[in-house]
């Protein structure tokens, strides 16, 4: 453990990362010296906004299995598909093609028929991946079990057949959980609850009834009779990222940060062309363009909707220090 070195090192005030465990599906790390809001943004973005590929459209030709078409289609959607180097794939909505093409989709076909007396199991490995795709691994079903089977799709009895064509597309988990790169993300801070962000329920004693987190050993427990520090903020965050198999866990973090930066870059770009940053806008909705001759442009506290000062458009005199809100009704709503 070299935490002590780090803590003593006065220069290391910037964000630091310490990886405590990692394998092909997990990465556990500690992120320090960032704010809770940023750490949470990172968690949210890796859970919901890292793009992956998943089956999105299913054309069923034959389905005489016991499962309904929709049921099978749903199961197919949830199969993790290799999403490494997803940058090489377009979102279908951004693609130049009419409906779908090799630059924005991967085709997978499945054809299975049971002819023996035994129940036949159809697995993800039975999916045949089309060749028209950006590289030769994207869209492959993720198979990690020792037998090389992959996820079970359905079972067939003698005479039953399933034949379908799937179109896999790029997407994010905010739209549908099937596009999630993560199976779970652990997020934890302040294992001793020194900040009182939690109000632990207990019968007689919270300390004995609530098991300690494994990270409790990593931080000093509160001293006996230590007064509550109401200025304290959390600064050490413990992440436990478990990937779904479609992207390596370390790449999930990297892609997450990249997505966050794309968001920011897009907004910075939008701001830049809008008004040149210093409030001297000739763009839409500038206060001057809205000015109807009423003296609303006093301190930004009143509405432009034809009434000045404290009286809201709805009659009642707003009595808060802020007069009326920019939303067109009295300041009471704040």
């Amino acid at each position: 453990m070299d935490y002590d070195n780090m803590m003593l090192d006065g220069e290391s005030l910037g964000p630091t990362v310490k990886i405590s465990a990692a394998d092909s599906t997990h990465v556990d790390f500690e992120l320090t010296n960032v704010d809770l809001s940023f750490a949470n943004s990172l968690r949210r973005v890796i859970q919901a906004e890292v793009p992956t590929i998943a089956i999105d459209l299913v054309e069923v030709e034959v389905n005489t299995s016991v499962l309904a078409d929709e049921f099978v289609a749903h199961r197919l959607g949830l199969i993790p598909l290799d999403s490494r180097e997803i940058d090489q794939l377009n979102y279908t909505r951004d693609c130049d093609c009419e409906n779908s093409c090799g630059k924005c989709t991967v085709q997978l076909t499945l054809h299975a028929k049971c002819t023996s007396d035994e129940v036949m199991k159809v697995y993800a490995r039975d999916l045949i991946v089309g060749i028209d795709r950006p590289n030769n691994h994207i869209g492959n079903p993720v198979i990690t079990d020792p037998d090389g089977l992959g996820s079970l799709i359905c079972k067939l009895r003698k005479g039953q057949e399933i034949k379908l064509n799937c179109i896999a597309k790029k997407g994010i988990a905010k739209e549908h959980a099937k596009w999630s790169p993560t199976a779970a993300v652990g997020f934890e801070y302040d294992p001793h609850n020194k900040l009182h962000h939690l109000d632990l329920w207990y019968e007689t004693d919270a300390a004995t009834e609530w098991p300690k987190s494994k990270y409790a050993d990593w931080e000093e427990p509160p001293a006996e009779g230590e007064p509550f520090d109401f200025n304290a903020v959390p600064s050490r965050f413990y992440f436990e990222v478990e990937g779904a198999g479609n992207i390596e866990p370390d790449a999930i973090i990297q892609e997450g940060i990249k997505e966050l930066q794309k968001k920011l870059a897009g907004l910075i770009h939008g701001l830049g062309e809008n008004d040149g940053m210093n409030g001297d806008y000739d763009g839409p909705r500038s206060p001057d363009a809205m000015d109807g001759g009423v003296g609303w442009q006093d301190q930004g506290y009143t509405t432009p909707y034809g009434n000045a000062g404290n009286a809201s458009a709805w009659g009642g005199g707003a009595a808060t220090a802020y007069g009326t809100t920019p939303y067109g009704n009295s300041g009471g709503g704040w």
């Binding site: 897009g266 409030g279 206060p287 609303w296």
Partner: peptide, 14 residues
């Protein structure tokens, strides 16, 4: 455009 300034804003309070 994904950001806009709401009406009633001034240079220092928007």
């Amino acid at each position: 455009q994904r950001v806009r300034i709401l009406p009633g804003s001034t240079e220092t309070a928007a």
